[in-house]
Each structure stands twice: as structure tokens, then as C-alpha cells.
Design a protein around this nucleic acid. Structure first.
Length: 120
RNA sequence: CCAGACGGCCGGGCGGUCGCGGCCUCCGCAAGGGGGUCGAGGAAAGUCCGGGCUCCACGACGACAUGGCGGCGGGUAACGCCCGCCGGGGGCGACCCCAGGGAUAGCGCCACAGAAAGCAAACCUCCUCCCUUUCGAGGGCGGGAAGGGUGAAAGGGUGGGGUAAGAGCCCACCGCGUUCCUGGUGACAGGGACGGCAUGGCAAGCCCCGCCAGGAGCAAGACCGAAUAGGGACCGUGCGCCCGCCGCAAGGCGGGCAGGGCCGUCGUAGGCCCGAGCGGUCCGGGUAGGUCGCGAGAACCGUCCCGCGAGGGGCGGUCCAGAGGAAUGAUCGCCUAUGUCCGGAUCUUCGGAUCCGGGCGGCACAGAACCCGGCUUACAGGCCGUCUGGUCCC
RNA sequence: CGGAGUGUGGCUCAGUCUGGUAGAGCACCGCGUUCGGGACGCGGGGGUCGCAGGUUCAAAUCCUGCCACUCCGA
């Protein structure tokens, strides 16, 4: 129940994506993830994007669907509250084997969480 | 069985687990949750044509400009689409491809080569006659365009007659033109007579002829409508003076002084602003935003009738995505289907074919954004039907 | 949604309107010059004209359909 509410919030507005553009990022395999701290609320939000470089509408939608599925599986245990995550599709995201894609997302999320702990 | 032509269709299925979007319904103060139901394509694509729909413009009709179309007859809401037929070309054939008419309405172009590229003419050459001659030939007045050569194209073609040599000069057939008859709705086809080659090609060069087109697009358009600024009406309160301009006037505009405000506060000095309004209530336009437009239709399924066909009509049934930058996914199993490899068996025209078992690989192009009809382009693999040419057997 | 333009040697561009020879600069190769290099001089190679059909005797050029890219307007 708590997990379900966890990543329900979706980023849709262009301004929200732009706000995350300068945030720390980590690229792993076929995915690049950005994480931006928001102080006002504790819930986690996520956005998904794929540029025309990925391919046509079919490729881009499929890329976003796979990233969405990966986020749905992994964010509840790996995300930190109060952060916005933006998942950017890179080349090969549609053809990458599913376990490998999960590994990419998982290691990137862990790395971003560690970066947030260590500095300052 | 092999090779091929044309047309149509499909483009995985079933079941778990976890998820997504719309609508309905129930629980809940709410956040949210439960249940039900529906949920991409043949091209949804490119945006190349044609319509619906909406707004704008516009008396009717016509003309001009611009753009498009072009055999004939149908289909259609319409089309540049489709069907049938005509003509030309290709193929042994099934079948495929192409095309409006006009070059005597006019303008323009036809490079190079060639004597000559549209005016007819004559480079080599052919022939009669005449002259010269070293007897090889050369020159001249004429006749002619058959042959050579150039070219994509040289003023009909083939054959025969004819002639000094030749020529539609004459004849036959073909082609071309004019005219008549017959068949056909028509494009056109068939036939007869006459003419006697005159009139080359390019109009997807300009153009002539006929026909069709008002413009923009759902970000069209309609309704509701916040904050801020500005407009108007009413109420309350306040309103000194001078100059200039406009105006019949009420009044309006500009400038100055008095006065007021601000520069943290007080005093002094200075600067800037206001200088006739200020406050309240209401009204209208309108931005952000929201709602509608927004899916029951040139719809789909079945069936009957008309038509060669495209298609049209009748009857019965069904409701079938619609939302925001946008929903169908992930994963597992089985089945189906197929490619390849290995092993075994059978047949063999020694190329291979069929069957069984196992391993590996494995679903193409691609995602509705107002909606339809077409066109074009992309597409792994597969199915069905009709037909053609071969080969073998009965 | 609507409109405009571009595609030609390795690069930047002419040539397309008005159809017949594809050209310029830089770059590349060879030779000369120099002790050597650069610069300079001479000579040379290199292009399916984005793709596919069509018109024409003949197409980079004309017509049609695709592909890729760029730029405007709402």
C-alpha cells in the first residue's frame, strides 16, 4: 500500500524536466538517470523521456514503457523520499535483455543514493 | 511436379503472475480503494489528392489571372481514385506498361556530324549531249535524286514496270490525307471511292481548345471565465491659482506655481514622482485556465436482389478506442507455424525427397490525436483462389 | 497543421530557368625548385549529379513518386 503510493506521481510538465536537467546524473548501459532534491515534500516523483535519436514513435514509447516498468519494480526499495528522478532512454534500451536493463537501473540508483550521502 | 501471371486474406493462439487508459458502479469526509466493461492498423505512416465539418469573404451570372486535369463510357459526396472498353508498345502465353487533341493559330528548339535540319536543296555520285585529252581522265550546258556517306531524324515503304539515267512517271499491297457507307451510346473498328505524296520531330518548351477550382484550417470554431493592468456607470469624499491651444458651449489637452508623496526615522539640503483625484460597488470586453466540438456513420456484420465490373439497393442485427504529449507493457509455460544443424529409417532419375527424434534461432513494418474516400511508401513469414507455359503418368 | 528550400569529385559551391561539353577553388598524387620543408611553377587522377520510373534522338537539367536534411509561420 505504501509502496503503491510511492512512485505514483509522474513528471509531465516541461518545466519539471528542465528543473532536473542540471541535477546529478548517472549513466549505466542503456539508461541515464537524473536525481534532483525537492525539499518541500517527501514523496518520490519520476519522469521518463526518450528523444527522437532513439527511433520512431513505436521505439520511443516502447523505451519509455520498459523504463517505467523498471522504475515500478525498483524505485520502492532504492529511491530516496523527496527526490525527483528522470529516466532518459539511451541507445539500445529497447533491445537490451530485461535482466540487464534492471541491473542498469539498479546500479545507477544505488550510485546516485551513495553520491547523495557522501558529499557535503 | 517445375517455372510463372493475377486477385484476395492473415499478419500468432491459449493460460498464469504483476501492471496501464477511458467509462459505469459501490465504499470512503478526503486521499484512495473494490467490482464490471471496453481499449490501435493494413498501412494508424508519408501528408500527395478529394470530401465532410467550422469560421471568414461574397448580390446573381460572367470575364481575366493563377493552378490542376485530359482516349471513350460508367461508378462516386468528390477526386488526379476505381471499373469496363478503345488505341499504341512488350511478352510463346496468362498478362503487363503507356497515352487528351492541336506542329497549316502563332513563337521557339533540333547540339555534334553532315552538302543540306525544314526552306527545299545537291558533297560524292548517275545519265544524254558538247569540248579537251598524255586515252588514265578532265571540263561545260542540261536531266535526275536511284546509290554512297552523316545523323535520332534527309520530303512515304516494299516489289514490279518504265527510262539515256531516273522520279508516284505508271501499277499492286501497306502507310498517309479527303470523302462516303456500315456497326457501336462513344473512343473507334470494318469496307468503298478519290487524291498522288504535299503536310519531319519536340507541346511532361511557351501556347491554343475543353473541363474543374473563393480563402483558411479542430491551434477551425462555440461557451464559461481567475489574478493583474486598463475601460465604463453609480455612490461617498475631495477639488486652489496662472498661461497657451482646441471648441459656439459644456469641457478637453499641455505647461508652471501652490500643495502632497517617496528617497528607513528626525533636522537641514538635494533629487524623483503626483499635482485632481482617491475609495467603494457594479458592468462589459478579454488573457491564463476550463468545458464543448469529439465520434451512430459516405460505419461494421449477415443475407437477398440488380450490374460483366467498380458499385447500387432492400431486409435483419451490432455499438466498436478516444484522454493530458498521449493508455495495450513486463515475465513465464504450453500449443501452432517456420528456418537451420545433427542422428536414424525409407524411396531414389544419385540432384534430392519424405518420415521420426533431438539441439539452436525466432516473430515484419510499425502506435489513433477532428473524421472519412483514395494514392504512395514500409512489411519477417504464411494461407486461399483463378489462370498460363512446360514435363511426366493414366 | 500550413509553407519554402537544399542534395553535383574528399570539402565549399557553379552549371538546372533556356535539355546535347559536368566546371572552379581548396585538398590529393607526380615532377621541378631547395641542403631539407613550406610557398611557388608544370602536369595528372578522382564525380551512380540523393533514389526509382517516365517524356525525348538525347535528362544533372523537364514531369511524377519516394529518401534525407535545413529553415520559416500558426
Amino acid at each position: 500500500m505504501a509502496d503503491a503510493a510511492f512512485c505514483i506521481k509522474r513528471l509531465t510538465k516541461r518545466a519539471e524536466f528542465l528543473a532536473c536537467a542540471k541535477a546529478p546524473y548517472c549513466a549505466r548501459g542503456a539508461v541515464l538517470i537524473q536525481a534532483r532534491r525537492r525539499d518541500e515534500a517527501a514523496l518520490v516523483r519520476a519522469g521518463f523521456t526518450a528523444t527522437k535519436r532513439i527511433g520512431g514513435a513505436v521505439e520511443r514509447n516502447r523505451a519509455k514503457r520498459r523504463l517505467r516498468e523498471a522504475a515500478r519494480l525498483l524505485l520502492p526499495e532504492l529511491a530516496r523520499p523527496g527526490f525527483d528522478y528522470v529516466f532518459v532512454a539511451r541507445g539500445g534500451v529497447t533491445s537490451r535483455p530485461w535482466p540487464r536493463l534492471l541491473d542498469d537501473v539498479k546500479s545507477a540508483l544505488i550510485r546516485l543514493a551513495a553520491e547523495r550521502d557522501s558529499p557535503i
